[in-house]
């Protein structure tokens, strides 16, 4: 029982990281931009959030938890948006190939984050010495009565606020896309930019905004990983990147629906921890279990293409550049 509960807890922590990444990427892809830079953007969010509070805590003997959270989140969000802006500039304005740009962004930001992660460690005095205790505690804080609850509700309420924020963000993005006029326009841009253009929608503006905001949301996943999972230190083993790719897979798994992404994220989280809780696995068989989320994505892809429902297909103009005067 305790094992099961700890599997669920671990699954939800990873699920939350993936959910931020996927929600942001869904918003981006709805505008027709296929940003494969999600892992990189999550790296940016993680490192810049960490760096911001690291200097704040280093220079303040008595840091305020609220300020810590605000600094970490705004640094992460802005840095990630900047990543999205680089991508937008290259693909929308300069019409570079989207796949290449995204992959480059992932490679670039991975190097960037690990370089500065190393610098922070050096400043802090060695590997594992980065200490943002106040911030990490604030991110991991639960409501005061939670520790006294019975096991099941304790499990459900025992996470830091960002785990719940992820679900709220997914619902809000879903509502904006499906219920508002802005969302309708955004969907049109991703499906058929020429039509959107003729209907008087500013295609460039929508693409830029959706891509930058989406990147900002994705970046929060990296911050959550750093503040909650690694408890405010830097892990250069590439954990963020592998979760970032799972987020890209989740976008497909959810068939571009943020609400479906919520339970999908937790499922992916569970599946990526499953190997840890199955007794008697060798190092080799472990790797087979780590394949599960991707395997599930492949199955969903096959199922979706067999059903051929138009609503389950990617936005029709996904990955294609748009310019008005081309015939």
């Amino acid at each position: 029982m305790t094992e099961l509960i700890s599997l669920f807890q671990a699954g939800i922590v990873f699920g939350t990281v993936i959910l931020y990444g996927a929600t942001g990427e869904i918003l981006t892809e709805k505008s027709g931009n296929l940003n494969l830079g999600v892992p990189g953007i999550m790296y940016l969010g993680g490192i810049m959030g960490l760096m911001g509070v690291f200097f704040y805590e280093m220079n303040n003997p008595d840091p305020s938890p609220i300020l810590c959270v605000l600094i970490a989140m705004s640094c992460a969000f802005l840095a990630s948006m900047l990543g999205g802006l680089i991508y937008s500039l290259l693909t929308i304005t300069l019409r570079a190939n989207q796949n290449v740009t995204g992959l480059t962004l992932t490679i670039f930001a991975g190097g960037f984050a690990n370089f500065f992660g190393g610098s922070l460690m050096k400043l802090a005095g060695g590997v594992g010495q980065i200490n943002v205790a106040t911030t990490s505690a604030a991110f991991r804080a639960t409501l005061p009565f939670v520790p006294n609850l019975p096991a099941l509700p304790r499990m459900l309420l025992g996470f830091g606020f960002m785990a719940y924020l992820a679900v709220v963000v997914a619902f809000v993005v879903s509502w904006v896309i499906n219920r508002t006029s802005v969302g309708l326009n955004l969907r049109a841009v991703g499906e058929n930019p020429a039509t959107a253009d003729a209907a008087g929608i500013n295609v460039t503006k929508y693409k830029y905004l959706a891509t930058c905001l989406g990147a900002g949301i994705s970046g929060l996943g990296g911050l959550y990983y750093v503040m909650d999972y690694t408890k405010g230190t830097w892990d250069s083993a590439g954990g963020i990147e592998s979760l970032g790719w799972l987020a890209v897979a989740l976008v497909i798994f959810s068939t571009w629906r943020p609400k479906r992404g919520i339970w999908g994220a937790y499922l992916f989280g569970l599946l990526s921890w499953l190997y840890f809780y199955i007794p008697g696995l060798t190092r080799r068989s472990m790797e087979l279990f780590k394949m599960l989320p991707y395997l599930v994505t492949v199955i969903v892809l096959v199922a979706a293409s067999l059903r051929r429902r138009r609503e389950d297909q990617p936005p029709a103009a996904l990955g294609l550049p748009y310019f008005r005067e081309e015939r």
């Binding site: 006029s181 309708l184 969907r187 049109a188 499906e191 058929n192 039509t195 008087g200 929608i201 138009r310």
Partner: peptide, 14 residues
């Protein structure tokens, strides 16, 4: 836009 309904296409961008 193919995946939208007639009504959604009509109000698009308005």
């Amino acid at each position: 836009v193919d995946v939208l309904t007639a009504a959604e296409n009509i109000v698009l961008g308005l």
